[in-house]
Design a protein around this nucleic acid. Structure first.
Lengths: 171, 171
DNA sequence: GTCTATAGAAGGATAGAC
DNA sequence: GTCTATCCTTCTATAGAC
């Protein structure tokens, strides 16, 4: 907390003026805010690639590139908090859960727009988010991008398989 | 540390007698030990199901069941440590990396035994571990098993797709 | 070689001056 | 309503008695 306040060049007491709930409230709001920020990345990448399979490939490639550029220090800002706090703080757990549900909803919409039925779209999106999050864990631990590369390839295949035959481009 | 020592009914100083490296060393050895323990679960489940696709299904179903029984409090003992410490402790990061590499190697052997070429076996195993780890993150945050269920279905499909046509059982 | 008692730092939170 | 100074707790680690 002291580090955060110093970094913000604010007096220490201000934290408790603006965040009466203290550390937990500040954490929860940070999760929601950075979660929404990450969520905005999704349409950004997807809209640049009209083909869903290409978009998935691009997304994982970008994730791998960002991870290396961040020296393997920053990946998903939510996952760490989710694992650390889900059993000890209902407020923080709920914030993480809401962010994940938003991402699933956001992704599902785009996936469905590619011609995949609503339920299948949700399932595909959940699987891709799970694979992305898990790959981040493996990559940060090993300091390699192998898991992200491999995961991207599989997710592209999954997207391909979920597409209705009529809309496949053969990527 | 105090909690651990108290739980072990040991005097506090003993920690630093047996683990001169303090918290970091104790953590690293815990990661390696519980990682190996989890690793032993893999052959246990896989050997009970001679068909790889069935084994994958069983593994995810078991993971979901265990998670619910643990009230969503315990999932993977390595992932949390990996995310929390990879940027701040080289010793702990390396311990997590070694565990993950062991799991990949262990899994690859079994997958390869189902008739999948060595490289494809490694890629499939990495993808499945990533999806499992990511699903744990989502499930613990949402306190639902949806992500694990969905991930299990996709991993079964992935295993199916990776099998040589001659060995497919049509599961 | 085992353990107790405590050091020394960092943690989060608050009281009360302005 | 803003901020400073400080409180109390908790943390990891160690010194030194036995």
């Amino acid at each position: 907390m002291k580090e955060i306040v110093a970094n913000a060049r604010a007096p220490f007491g201000s934290v408790y003026h603006f965040f009466p709930g203290g550390k937990e409230q500040l954490g929860a709001e940070t999760v929601r805010r950075s979660g929404a920020e990450c969520g905005r990345l999704l349409p950004l990448v997807l809209d640049a690639h009209p083909d869903l399979v290409e978009a998935v490939r691009a997304f994982f490639a970008l994730a791998a590139q960002d991870l290396v550029e961040a020296n393997y220090e920053d990946a998903c800002p939510i996952a760490t908090v989710a694992l650390e706090t889900s059993s000890t703080s209902e407020i923080l757990r709920q914030a993480c859960a809401d962010v994940f549900e938003d991402w699933i909803e956001l992704g599902s919409e785009r996936v469905a727009a590619a011609g995949i039925p609503r339920d299948a779209a949700r399932n595909l999106t959940i699987a891709m988010i799970a694979m992305l999050e898990g790959a981040f864990v493996l990559c940060r631990a090993t300091r390699t991008t192998e898991a992200l590369i491999v995961s991207g390839q599989w997710c592209a295949k999954m997207a391909e398989a979920a597409m209705p035959a009529s809309r496949r481009t053969g990527n």
